[in-house]
C-alpha cells in the first residue's frame, strides 16, 4: 500500500454457496464491518452476515396511515369545514363516498414510503463508492460474488485479515482503495 488509503479487503467467489459459507466464517471470526455483493438477492446471506431485519415495513405502515388520514382529512376539510354543500341529499361527511380517494391515497403514500424509504435507508443515490475501484467488481452485477471486510472494522489487521480472506478459498483477493 503506497500513499493511497485502504478502504478494505475484498474476496471474489464463483457461486452463492461459496459466498454464504465464507460469510459465515467471517462472521464467526468476529468481523462486524462486512458486506457481501451479489448480482441477485440471496436470502441466506442475511443470517450469514448477521444483517438485522430492516425497519422499512414499519415506515411503510406509517406512510399508509398518513395517506389514509390525509385522504379523509382533505375530504372532511373541503366538504364539511371549508365549503359545506349538500349534493344528492347526502350528509356533509359522506364516509362511503369518501373511501375510494382515501384508499388510493393510502396506497400512494405507502408506495412512496416503500420506494424512497428503501433508497434512503440504502444511502442511494451514491455516485461514488470505493468498491468500484476494483476493476473485477464490475462483474458483481453479472455473475461473480464478493465479500468485503472494511478497514474500520475493530478486528482489521492488514496482514492477518488478508491471510484470513485467502484462507476462505476465494478466486482472488483484492485491496480496495479509498
Amino acid at each position: 500500500m503506497s500513499e493511497k488509503k485502504l478502504y478494505g479487503i475484498m474476496a471474489e467467489f464463483d457461486t452463492p454457496t461459496e459466498l454464504v459459507d465464507a460469510a459465515r466464517r467471517v462472521r464467526d471470526a468476529g468481523y462486524t464491518k462486512t458486506d457481501a455483493f451479489s448480482p441477485f438477492p440471496i436470502h441466506e446471506i442475511d443470517e450469514a452476515l448477521g444483517i438485522r431485519r430492516s425497519i422499512l415495513p414499519f415506515l411503510v405502515f406509517g406512510g399508509g396511515v398518513l395517506g389514509l388520514l390525509t385522504g379523509l382529512g382533505l375530504q372532511y376539510y373541503t366538504h364539511v369545514i371549508d365549503y359545506p354543500i349538500i349534493v344528492g341529499g347526502r350528509p356533509h361527511f359522506s364516509l362511503p363516498a369518501f373511501i375510494p380517494p382515501a384508499y388510493e391515497l393510502t396506497i400512494l403514500f405507502a408506495s412512496f414510503t416503500a420506494v424512497f424509504g428503501m433508497l434512503f435507508l440504502n444511502g442511494l443515490p451514491m455516485p461514488y463508492h470505493p468498491v468500484f475501484n476494483v476493476p473485477r467488481f464490475a462483474l458483481a452485477s453479472r455473475d461473480k460474488f464478493f465479500l468485503l471486510i472494511e478497514r474500520r472494522d475493530p478486528k482489521f489487521e492488514y496482514e492477518e485479515t488478508r491471510k484470513f480472506m485467502e484462507s476462505l478459498n476465494p478466486q482472488e483477493v483484492f485491496d480496495v482503495e479509498e
Binding site: D35, A36, F37, S38, P39, F40, P41, I42, I45, D46, L49, I51, S54, L56, M118, L119, L121, N122, L124, P125, M126, P127, Y128, H129, V131, F132, F137, A140, S141
Partner: peptide, 13 residues
C-alpha cells in the same frame, strides 16, 4: 443510482 448489489441493500430492496 449507484446500485452496487450490497447484501444490506438487497435485503431492504
Amino acid at each position: 443510482w449507484g446500485w452496487r448489489g450490497s447484501a444490506r441493500h438487497w435485503h431492504r430492496y
